[in-house]
Write a protein that binds this DNA or RNA. Structure first.
Length: 465
RNA sequence: GGCGGCGUAGCCAAGUGGCUAAGGCGGCGGUCUGCAAAACCGCUAUUCACCGGUUCGACUCCGGUCGCCGCCUCCA
């Protein structure tokens, strides 16, 4: 099995990935809070997770991928006062939209998707363990994690907890805590808010507790990998560690992966700047979802990616080029010329591509290896003798790359359109008569319908624009 | 104020203490084509924000300046 290396926020180094259980990698990815449509910056994170999981699977690991859906939090409660029915009614469409967005971006669904509101029991159990072990206390019906009881606090984000007292942010929490650094595990019921009647009393879970409770419920008290946006490292993941390790006394997660943010036109994305766009917004503007996937996948996950309209259009062009290439490959026939060494080139490209991916997900280098092969194959197809084995090797390599990238066409066969076929035949006849004017006219008509023609030695081909 | 990241061609984006600074998109010129398209060939950063320093040698290491971005209690 190949060695996979990834940057681990905990160690601040590129670590060799060795699952706790050999051959089986258990990963938890922080999921969406479904109070609104996901914006493109949120979605980058899921594309990064997708590339990561696909790479781990390609390396031969059996991956169990769990993702949460946060369907109860302050924003949701504010938007949907009342009980559980009210927040479910409010969040359901956003949850549905979120998974539609994942599908649009060709992101594989996780093996397990868990909603916070369906795991309150597990969270209550965990809070109880924290109380029993002296890490939590009650105040006015709410429960808090006592940071002073967990000396390791701040290890992930390298935060000096002493300095938090002088933090720039103003404390806005109206609940009473022993120490400003402590965070809520369970919030006492307030009138008009959703609540559960539990052994802790009537109330609702804090945000961080859901991820600790659900990840351990599905993946065990210690598991391999946990992902999130860079902003989640502190406080969310730091708090998760405190809760999990406080409750079990065992190490929580071995590898922490954090994905960088997307910039919009070199600016941060923020509602106040009016530059957050949902996938729907972008599709309405005519952007191609697969081009978008390619763009989001094409930069390294730990660098900020600058999102511009132009960049998406470029990515879309690139993907079109790959589609053209696969088609050319499918139609390829052996030609006379010097013998090609395409099979070897394919092998080299494969090696380079996956070495790059296995070495901290270096997508840009992997893509460069792929394009080197595309170029070599195009040259060979034009000037050399390619055996069916040569062509097959290139095709297999491309399809293998696409196990990670997932941007190629799924189905080969384009539905034949009789009207289009008839016009193409008509144009062929015109061309035989050397009636170029008529032929060009027909080509223009088809182009207006989004059909592009290519006259090749083997006849005219067409594709959708 | 504290901590951290980044600044590479028109655009997106890799990279290394010293061979010609990856790759993609775009543009220009050419081959092919009835014309196109696709593909191919050539050109498109004497230079890596700026200023110093270390070094035989730095884009890569150090210091400073400017710019952008993130975290510092619930934002991917």
């Amino acid at each position: 099995m190949p060695t996979v290396r990834l940057y681990n926020t905990m160690s601040r180094a590129i670590d060799v990935i060795e699952p706790l259980e050999p051959g089986h990698l258990r990963i938890y990815c922080c999921g969406p809070t479904v109070y609104d449509f996901a914006h493109i910056g949120n979605l980058r994170k899921y594309v990064c997770d997708d590339i990561l999981v696909r790479t781990l699977r390609h390396a031969g690991l059996n991956v169990t991928h769990v993702m949460n859906v946060t369907d109860v939090d302050d924003k949701i409660i504010n938007a949907a006062p009342g009980g559980l029915d009210a927040i479910r009614e409010y969040t359901a469409p956003y949850t549905k939209a979120f998974f539609e967005d994942l599908a649009t971006l060709r992101i594989q669904d996780p093996d397990v998707v868990c909603a916070a509101t369906e795991h309150v029991d597990q969270m209550v159990d965990m809070v109880q363990k924290l109380i029993d072990r002296g890490h939590a206390y009650q105040s006015d019906g709410s429960y808090y994690f006592r940071i002073a009881s967990f000396p390791e606090y701040g290890r992930l984000a390298r935060i000096d907890t002493a300095g938090m007292r002088a933090g720039a942010r103003v404390e806005v929490d109206e609940y009473s805590k022993d120490d400003v650094r402590d965070f809520a595990l369970w919030k006492a019921h307030k009138e008009g808010e959703v609540a559960w009647d539990t052994s802790l009393g009537r109330g609702r879970p804090g945000w961080h507790i859901e991820c600790s409770a659900m990840s351990m419920h599905y993946l065990g008290e210690s598991f391999d990998m946990h992902t999130g946006g860079v902003d989640n490292a502190f406080p969310h993941h730091e708090n998760e560690i405190a809760q999990a390790e406080g409750a079990t006394g065992k190490p929580f997660v071995k590898y922490w992966i954090h994905h960088e943010h997307l910039l919009m036109d070199s600016q941060k994305m923020a509602k106040s700047l009016g530059n957050t766009f949902t996938l729907r917004d972008l599709l309405d503007r005519g952007l191609d979802p697969v081009g978008l996937r390619y763009l989001l996948a094409s930069a390294h996950n730990r660098t900020q990616l600058n999102f511009t309209n132009e960049a998406v259009e470029q990515a879309t062009q690139t993907v079109k080029g790959l589609h053209d290439f696969m088609r050319r490959l499918a139609d390829a026939k052996a030609e006379e010329g010097e013998p090609s060494d395409l099979a070897e080139e394919a092998g080299e490209a494969r090696k380079a591509f996956f070495e790059a991916m296995y070495n901290d997900l270096q997508t840009p280098q992997a893509l460069a290896a792929m394009f080197d092969l595309v170029k070599a194959a195009n040259i060979a197809l034009q000037h050399k003798t390619c055996t069916s084995g040569d062509i097959e090797a290139v095709r297999d390599a491309m399809l293998e790359f696409d196990q990670i990238l997932n941007v190629l066409d799924a189905g080969e066969e384009e539905i034949l359109d009789e009207e289009i076929e008839r016009m193409i035949r008509e144009r062929e006849e015109a061309r035989e008569r050397r009636d170029w004017q008529k032929a060009d006219e027909l080509r223009d008509v088809l182009e207006d319908q989004g059909v592009l023609l290519e006259d090749t030695a083997d006849g005219t081909r067409w594709k959708r624009a």
